[in-house]
Simulated assay, not measured.
Amino acid sequence: MTLSKLFSDFFDSEKAGGLILIACTLFSLTLANSGISESYLHLWHYQIGTHSVEHWVNDGLMTIFFLLIGLELEREVYIGELSNLRNALLPISAAIGGMLIPAGIYLMLNYGTATQSGAGIPMATDIAFALGILSLLGNKVPVSLKIFLTALAVIDDLGAILIIAIFYTKTMVLTNLFIALGIFVLLLFLNRMKVRNLIPYLIGGVVMWYFMLNSGVHATITGVLLAFAIPFGNGDEKSTSYILQHFLHKPVAFLILPIFALANTAIVLNSESLSGLGSNYALGIALGLLLGKPIGIWLFSFVSVRLKISQLPEDLNWKSIFGVSFLGGIGFTMSIFITLLAFSDAEHINSSKIVILISSLIAGVIGLLFLKSTLKNSGASNG
């Protein structure tokens, strides 16, 4: 099995981006707890128009990130590993388990309380961090494992986006939502009319994003919708989808995600933010990421194969799936996204961010060590 050039580019940019994310997180935490803390925090809370800089990063720049995710998913569905239904059903099953079990664990501890809205926090996997950790194992990693983790994280993030759209939309302006969806239908019509020029799609995407932003639905869902409206053609280097995806790799990995990390990890570590670490919501997040994720991903994968719903690739075994399932517990990006929507209290938000960072670190280390031990004799090649 060989990796396509575009998938290789995607994986390489994501793994490098993941390592940069770690550096940016440490840098941001350091500044937030230094002598210039007040100025640094003010930078992200500075108002531009009707929103803060942090808000523009989360709702604006991250839409481009999800556009790239959508383009990669589209490629995998049309001509990649996910084009085979039985291959696709394995990461789909894993993603479903990796969302349901963590949410269930969280709700067991928080149902009926003021913090039950945080059930979505431990449900997501951060693709950049997860691939960054996996990349540390070099060519020991089987190709199918890279594809499984990428597909799992992409489907997982799309699931999180849908959860945000359905459960974390407090007030919905239907007129704006229908206009946004109307623009999406128009872009699909342009696709059917074989309009290959990228400009109309990008202009339409910006307008769709504006109305989605003002509809109450999380604006980042626009990126995913736009990705599936952009013409894929036969997927070669001249296709509209390929050109845009290739262009977005490095800006997303080396600019957009690092800015997101800086903006969302500006956390002041004090008695107030640390006091919530022993609470039920913090415990729910930690157990969801560290136990719920690996149990859900592995169990649902195992059951789907045993029931012959999906099939396990020849170069994978259940130990490698179990190791990668811990990498699925690296929540970061979407977990922080959902935290900002689930809670309005600063103490809850900061404590949740700290728990997400600690749990993601532990999950990453466990996954790395387990896979290092499991794959040490595999001699897998990237092809």
Rank of each mutant, 00 (worst) to 15 (best):
A151I: 08
A160C: 14
A165P: 14
I199K: 13
F247Q: 15
Y242W: 14
F129D: 03
T171D: 15
M208S: 01
I133Q: 09
G118D: 12
G138C: 09
I256V: 07
L186G: 06
I155A: 08
A114G: 07
A180E: 14
V217H: 09
F184H: 06
F189T: 04
L213H: 02
F247V: 04
I155K: 00
N197W: 07
I183A: 12
N234C: 10
Y242M: 10
T125G: 09
I166A: 08
P258M: 13
H246Q: 09
Y168K: 11
G204Y: 07
I163Q: 02
I121D: 03
I166G: 05
G182S: 05
L257G: 01
G204D: 06
F211A: 10
M208F: 01
A253C: 11
Y168D: 06
L248Y: 00
V185Q: 03
F228Q: 04
D236M: 12
V252H: 00
G182M: 10
A128I: 08
Q245T: 00
I203E: 04
F167K: 09
T220G: 01
N191L: 11
S215C: 12
T125C: 10
I183Q: 12
L225K: 00
V207D: 08
L162N: 04
I230R: 02
L186S: 14
G223K: 05
V173R: 13
I230E: 01
H249N: 15
V206E: 03
K250P: 04
E237Q: 14
A160K: 07
V252F: 01
T150A: 15
N191Y: 08
V207S: 11
F189K: 09
L131G: 04
I179G: 07
M208T: 03
L158K: 01
I183E: 14
G159A: 13
S135T: 02
N139C: 00
L162R: 06
G138F: 03
R192W: 07
G182Q: 12
F148N: 03
V143K: 11
Y242Q: 11
I147S: 12
F189R: 03
A253I: 03
G223M: 05
N234V: 09
A124F: 05
G159P: 13
A114R: 13
V207M: 10
M172I: 15
I256L: 14
G223C: 08
L198H: 04
L177M: 11
K146T: 08
I133W: 06
T150F: 13
L152F: 15
V143M: 05
I256K: 07
A160D: 10
L158E: 01
A165N: 09
F148W: 10
L145P: 14
K238W: 11
V217T: 14
L248S: 06
I259H: 00
A219V: 13
N197I: 00
G205C: 01
L136A: 09
P142V: 05
K140F: 06
A180N: 12
T240S: 14
